[in-house]
């Protein structure tokens, strides 16, 4: 793990208007992630952890504040620049897998490469090698509905890796999985971190902390210490 900060977020606000009420999803968050680190954002539902993840991923715009990834200012990018950023630097993993139901595992994994203009033979070859690595060699022609939750999430991880990203963003990746499948995914993320990728996971699964090199605790859109976090959770719990 190098000491350069790969992601730098400063004074980030995301404020929604819900009717007359102002919802502060992120209320002035600042953080730095080192290159090749495994970062876990812990927080209960509604704490703003997913919002933070999506803002770093350029899938949404902040109300104010700065997001810098690999020297690039994300919040200043236009639509096309954001698309390129996501295409070249990022891999997303979602709680509900978000695979395209009409496509086979192989086609799902290869899908991002279509938007990069990679030729069909090349992108399928890459997809197959990733699926083999995930232990899904026998399943490459199967549709998502023919796969278990754990298998679907491994297909999703393969898709996130197909463009060889430097930053992997995972939103509750174990949220829909049983314990064993969840462990497999966590181990996979650890492996990827060891290969030099920067990992940012939003979760409320405390097991994830064992893998983390850095943990961020969020409550009501604000960063809190681990102590205060545990206290609040206990009070709520």
């Amino acid at each position: 793990m190098s000491n350069t900060s790969f992601v730098r977020v400063s004074d980030l606000y995301k404020i929604y208007q819900m009717g007359n009420q102002e919802v502060r999803a992120l209320d002035g968050v600042s953080l730095e992630l080192q290159e090749g680190s495994f970062n876990v954002i812990m927080g209960p539902s509604g704490s703003g952890k997913s919002t933070l993840l999506y803002l770093v991923g350029g899938l949404d715009w902040p109300t104010s504040g700065q997001i810098e990834v690999d020297g690039q200012r994300i919040e200043l990018m236009d639509e096309n620049q954001l698309a390129q950023y996501r295409r070249e630097k990022l891999g997303f993993i979602f709680q509900s897998f978000n695979l395209v139901s009409s496509m086979s595992a192989e086609a799902n994994v290869a899908f991002p490469l279509r938007f990069s203009g990679v030729k069909k033979a090349k992108r399928l070859k890459r997809a197959v090698s990733l699926l083999e690595r995930m232990g899904l060699k026998e399943r490459i022609g199967h549709k998502p509905t023919e796969l278990s939750g754990g298998q679907q999430q491994r297909v999703a991880v393969s898709r996130a890796l197909v463009n060889n990203p430097s930053l992997i963003l995972a939103d509750e990746p174990t949220g829909n999985l049983d314990t064993t499948s969840g462990t497999i995914i966590m181990d996979l993320l650890k492996e990827l971190r060891e290969e030099g990728k920067t990992i940012l996971v939003a979760t409320h699964d405390p097991r994830m902390l064992q893998y983390a090199t850095n943990a961020i605790f969020l409550i009501d859109g604000k960063e809190v210490t681990e102590e205060n976090y545990k206290k609040t959770i206990q009070q709520q719990g």
Partner: peptide
């Protein structure tokens, strides 16, 4: 709609 979100997340441009 979700599929559109997925396509954008994996790098599709608005023009795509």
């Amino acid at each position: 709609t979700r599929e559109i979100g997925i396509m954008k997340a994996i790098g599709a441009t608005n023009n795509n």
